[in-house]
Design a protein around this nucleic acid. Sequence first.
DNA 1: TTGAAAGCGTTACCAT
DNA 2: ATGGTAACGCTTTCAA
Lengths: 350, 350
Amino acid sequence: MTIADPQARPRGATLEEVAKVAGVSRATVSRVVNGSPRVSGEVRRSVETAVTQLGYVPNRAARSLVTRRSGSIAVVITEPTGRLFSDPFFPRLLRGISGGLSARDQQLILLMPESPADTERTATYLAAGHVDGILLVSLHGDDPLPDRIARAGIPFVVGGRPLRGHAASFVDVDNRGGARSAVEHLLAAGRTTIATIGGPGDMGAGVDRLAGYRDALADAGLTADPSLEIAGDFTQGGGAAAMEQLLAARPDIDAVFAASDLMAAGAIAVLEAAGRRIPQDVAIVGYDDSPVASTTRPRLTSVRQPIEEMGQEMARLLLAAVDGSDPVQRRVILATELVRRASSAGRRVP
Amino acid sequence: MTIADPQARPRGATLEEVAKVAGVSRATVSRVVNGSPRVSGEVRRSVETAVTQLGYVPNRAARSLVTRRSGSIAVVITEPTGRLFSDPFFPRLLRGISGGLSARDQQLILLMPESPADTERTATYLAAGHVDGILLVSLHGDDPLPDRIARAGIPFVVGGRPLRGHAASFVDVDNRGGARSAVEHLLAAGRTTIATIGGPGDMGAGVDRLAGYRDALADAGLTADPSLEIAGDFTQGGGAAAMEQLLAARPDIDAVFAASDLMAAGAIAVLEAAGRRIPQDVAIVGYDDSPVASTTRPRLTSVRQPIEEMGQEMARLLLAAVDGSDPVQRRVILATELVRRASSAGRRVP
DNA sequence: TTGAAAGCGTTACCAT
DNA sequence: ATGGTAACGCTTTCAA
């Protein structure tokens, strides 16, 4: 008489069964499965035979229960609906993370809290220690997650520089340097009145790209002008709205640096509607080098970022922290590259 | 003297501890936590107090071990690198799935096998019963996963019609109907020589959109012409290459139906380079209504699909199957909608 | 090098 | 309605 199976789902072989087939004890099978050196070659072989014969796969739940390790890594993406839908950033990053994790067969658990209530549940879940480590992506300034999981003592790595000074490890692309190179490029082309459509002020990427813009102007001996700076939300619609405002306030601009390609695309549409020629009247540079950069007319000069590499590096850092082999705070900044296209070509006729 | 903690990670309160604080047995606490009706209101309250006081969160591993349920759902995305990077389809779908799952606090586990070896590992992992159910996305014809997990008896739902007749539940958008409506729209505008750049021949979306294209032609009394049909890979580059071939073979075409917006964007670039005016000389319709549809010049008429809804529906179906409450095969087809823009506007002058 | 046995935190059955 | 207790499958001392 066997105990009723709650869900009557086929259950795989257990350690016990493998042990019986191999004629050894459970402990020995466990050692073989976990690659312990304290097993004789002969016994190891017979156990391995039994394992393949029975198609044995360790039960993760049982293992987790005793090791206190879940074998999984959480990726938390907290993004206001809308951006996730249009931005290729996330699939690329996930691909990188997945690649960085695959060597160690940790499972990737994806959490996408949509509401503050969701975030609360997510925080509880994470703080309860259900994952071995956490990757925080697209963090906004007021997110309670970093504090919560830091207090719970779970290792985590942030993607993008966190704005508030959490003593956390993070991986970022060189937003400031990338923005600077974009604006330097515009200056070198003879542009003098360069506006910027920035990212959200509560995100590292937004703040840093604005700083890079100002850096380049300062180096050229120009002073920052608030009427040339406006914040967007990384979306195409946001870019268009920002461009309308800019144009109304400063009809004399001859160049725009947009902190995302989508915003640049929105700006282009508005500029054309206003009768400005690109790049003759107004030059424009975007950010991300996303696929849209090749579809705009004219094609868009943009700052390319190594997103997959960023994901991979995040995974690497986190695994090191989880292993306890590298408890140190690490900050990794990956270089960007300016891709020149038609939208910023030619020299302006003064 | 306590037993050494393998990772010295803070461990949360256990059922036992809650029981002690509340002055009841473990069994009773378990009942309260799991919402059993067989507890008196008074006891329930005192247990709840103890739970919040101790910040108790159930240990999933322990629970899984006895219930044989993991509390997690896997999403497997098998996509040749390249498409995932540019297609907003995946984030949208994930968002929908995540939303559909959130009501039931199942964890979403994301698997993105990149190589055949990865796929093999993934199959083993899934077949071992580590998840309660599986969502298969972007399946290609030769994928071994459906057979493997069907044999293992794990419930699964496919996103997009599977090509080989797996007796599986699936959710799809009405690719055939969507394509048909796109081509009917072109016919209504007076176009007579309509080419198509299709999707991959090993994917349901590719096959069905081609079928819809042929449906519309047949209804109009036109016969399918192989020289007007060419297969693409859903990418912009693929669309451009396909358009080159089409133009070389049939310089007389006056309309193109592309099975993705990205391919349409590639086609537009090639057409313009060849000196064709859009839509005067050649009208063009895309598929997906993705953000690029608004950035092309002229803006792209396209078929809009309810992707988030598709994800949500997949989650709903899977949860029903996991509960055993709906073991029936279900096929859900979601309607599409044609969004008219400038790329197909105007009537052709004969 | 190998085995016996003690947990890990829960659930669910069987009494009470 | 509540409590005692036997699993669940695995890792890890401790002995041999």
